[in-house]
Amino acid sequence: MECRLCLYSVPVESSVSIFDDAHPLVQRIWTCCRLQIEKGNGLPDKICLSCVNNLEMISSFRNACLESVKTSKQIR
């Protein structure tokens, strides 16, 4: 199986469907990377666990930055 984001080949059990309702990955990918993901466009519909973890870290960092901006605006 090839990861849609990094294009590395990984075992199927080491991947997650980006269109799985349990994982809001399509929206998270858009929010963090501004990549529009469409189903059925011929590209793989799974990403590897490494990309999932990287996406989680980016998302957490982005959220922390947004919170610090809100906090600093309230202090001033």
Rank of each mutant, 00 (worst) to 15 (best):
C48R: 03
P24I: 04
S72T: 05
F61Q: 05
S68L: 12
M1I: 03
V16T: 13
E13C: 12
R4D: 00
E56K: 10
E2S: 04
C3D: 11
V52C: 10
P11Y: 08
R34L: 02
C3M: 12
E2M: 08
S72E: 11
E13I: 12
C33P: 00
P11E: 15
I75E: 13
P24W: 01
K73T: 10
Q74R: 11
S68T: 13
M1D: 04
C6M: 02
C6W: 07
R62C: 03
N41H: 09
N53I: 04
L55Y: 02
Q74T: 13
Y8D: 10
P11V: 04
D21R: 15
P44L: 10
P24G: 13
L66N: 15
K46H: 05
R76I: 11
L66I: 11
F19H: 12
S60Q: 12
G40S: 07
Y8K: 06
I47Y: 07
T31N: 13
A22L: 11
I47C: 07
F19Q: 08
K70N: 08
K70C: 01
D20K: 07
A64P: 00
I29F: 07
I29G: 00
V16R: 14
R62A: 05
V12A: 06
L49E: 03
D20Q: 05
P11R: 15
V52G: 01
R4V: 03
M57F: 09
C32T: 07
D20Y: 00
S68W: 04
M1A: 09
V69Y: 05
L66F: 05
D21C: 13
V69T: 07
V26G: 03
V10E: 09
L49A: 01
C65K: 13
G40D: 13
R76N: 03
L35T: 08
E67S: 15
T31D: 14
V69D: 11
V52P: 03
C48S: 06
R34G: 02
R76Y: 07
I47V: 14
R4I: 02
S68E: 12
S72W: 11
K70G: 00
V69C: 06
S17N: 14
E38T: 05
G40L: 07
L25M: 14
C32R: 11
T31E: 13
A64M: 09
S72H: 10
R76A: 07
Q74E: 14
S17F: 09
V12Q: 03
M57D: 08
D21E: 15
I47D: 05
L49C: 02
F61P: 00
S72N: 09
P44A: 08
V10P: 01
H23G: 00
S59F: 06
K70M: 02
W30L: 11
C33Y: 15
R62G: 00
L43E: 03
C3V: 10
K39P: 00
E2P: 03
K46R: 12
C6V: 01
V10Y: 04
L49V: 07
S14Y: 09
K39S: 08
R28W: 05
L7A: 09
I47S: 02
S15M: 06
C51G: 04
A22N: 13
S17Y: 11
